[in-house]
Design a protein around this nucleic acid. Structure first.
Length: 433
DNA sequence: TCTGGGGTCCTAGGACCC
DNA sequence: TCTGGGGTCCTAGGACCC
């Protein structure tokens, strides 16, 4: 069932430019004008400043390649905690203009501006410009903004000109912006769907938007029908203020090179994934009722299993047996693997978890005390200060490779008044990497 | 895009229930 | 006992996003 808003809306999409790199430049003014990239901790470019992009650095590039095309690049580890604070500041600014702010990701938001022209004494473009100026002045970063009738069109608009773009797409001009836009660039249409559409000679966003409703309904599922409406200026996606509370799932994966078929090593990776996922779950006071385990072969194909946990929990010891069981099911001796992954799903607030008559309540409470001590030690002395013996082979391997150090502590004059605990307690949005 | 890591939502099909 | 129709819940897998 698709519901279309009955009256026209004005929706703004704001997208910070090269967000991580811009934050670094804002904090370290000496980096302004220089090519900066983040992602040092993972060996690939997570974000590149426009100076770096100008020299050919792209997102996802390996670091050695980035250095090759841009020898004077400044290479930094990603500091999510700090980027999160910039993000929160940006959302606060947006809320001064309208309460209808949807925090879409760490560096993007939608704002419903419908009806605000009067109170701002000017057209939507003026409002957008003021937002842009305020963000630049208070945060020292630039952002690109698009305004149009729907979220999908606002996305098209904000991407139209970057960096520091400001694009308004009124209803009568929609076709101009869609005519030369490849259909796979539309938000929500990926490689698979565009390949399918190509069979029907649909290659541009305009050709897709101009398709007959019967065609769309006959061949495509709900999300694409919605996108089709949105591209035609009929708003179906509301701007939702509710901040997504917590997570629906928490996953941890790790790629290792070279690939391995060593059973002990691979299980150790998985065990470490599980511990990391549980740490994050506990930090958000969540507990999982389902566990998904998957291994990725050299051919990039995943095999996995999903298991129901005997008790809803965020304590690795309680999950270890399931992990072993699942691993036995998935692991094949003759296969080379390049990645392991664990997903905690069926999450619910820890306080809602009910004990059953089979549970060893005193035992669980004891375990809770042990883990809260572990978590505290980890916070003070670093991750994996205390860990499962089964994860040890993974740790030894990491040390052997020359483990990546913790991110250095930064002075954060910008954020005086907030202590570490408060900051850690803040919601961290999905990071764009 | 020869490929890192962390998420969400939708759909089809089976199990199970009146 | 082979025989309707309808609802709900769950799971596997696909597709897409930042």
């Amino acid at each position: 069932m698709i519901t279309i808003h009955s009256w026209p809306r004005a929706i703004m999409h704001i997208d910070a430019d090269a967000f991580f790199a811009s934050c670094e430049q804002a904090i370290h003014p000496e980096l302004k004008g220089r090519p900066v990239i983040t992602g040092k901790e993972r060996g690939i470019v997570a974000a590149a400043s426009y100076e770096a992009k100008a020299k050919g650095v792209e997102r996802g590039m390996r670091l050695f390649e980035a250095k090759k095309v841009c020898p004077d690049v400044v290479l930094l580890p990603s500091d999510y905690e700090t980027y999160s604070l910039f993000s929160i500041r940006m959302f606060e600014i947006l809320r001064r203009f309208s309460p209808d702010v949807e925090e879409y990701s760490i560096d993007e938001a939608f704002v419903d501006l419908t009806g605000l022209r009067r109170s701002f004494h000017g057209p939507y473009s003026d409002i957008a410009q003021r937002v842009q100026e305020t963000v630049a002045k208070e945060l020292g970063i630039s952002a690109s903004i698009g305004v149009s009738l729907t979220k999908v069109l606002a996305k098209v608009a904000s991407k139209h000109k970057k960096p520091c773009g400001l694009t308004i797409i009124p209803g009568r001009d929609i076709h101009i912006y869609l005519a030369n836009l490849p259909v796979e660039k539309v938000w929500g249409i990926g490689p698979n769907t565009s390949a399918f559409l190509r069979k029907f000679s649909i290659t541009t966003a305009l050709e897709f938007a101009g398709s007959k409703e019967e065609f769309i309904k006959a061949y495509l599922s709900k999300p694409y029908q919605e996108i089709w409406h949105e591209l035609n200026g009929r708003s179906v996606y509301p701007v939702t203020r509710e901040s997504k509370s917590g997570y629906k799932s928490i996953s941890k994966t790790r790629t290792f090179t070279p690939p391995s078929r060593d059973e002990t090593f691979i299980f150790a990776q998985l065990s470490k994934n599980l511990e990391n996922a549980c740490i994050k779950a506990r930090r958000y006071n969540l507990a999982a009722s389902r566990l998904i385990i998957f291994l990725r072969g050299q051919d990039f194909r995943d095999t996995g299993v999903e298991l129901k946990l005997t008790r809803t929990t965020a304590y690795p010891v309680e999950i270890m047996e399931s992990l072993k069981e699942g691993f036995r099911e998935v692991y094949k001796h003759d296969t080379l693997y390049r990645l392991t992954g664990v997903v905690l799903a069926g999450l619910q607030p820890e306080m809602d978890v009910q004990y059953t008559i089979f549970d060893d309540v005193p035992g669980i409470e004891k375990m809770a005390r042990v883990y809260s001590a572990v978590d505290e030690l980890s916070e003070r002395f670093g991750k994996h200060t205390v860990q499962h013996a089964s994860s040890l082979p993974a740790k030894l391997q990491a040390q052997h490779e020359g483990d990546r150090g913790d991110t250095p502590v930064r002075k954060e004059e910008l954020f005086r008044g907030e202590n570490r605990r408060q900051r850690l307690g803040l919601p961290v949005l999905n990071a764009k990497v």
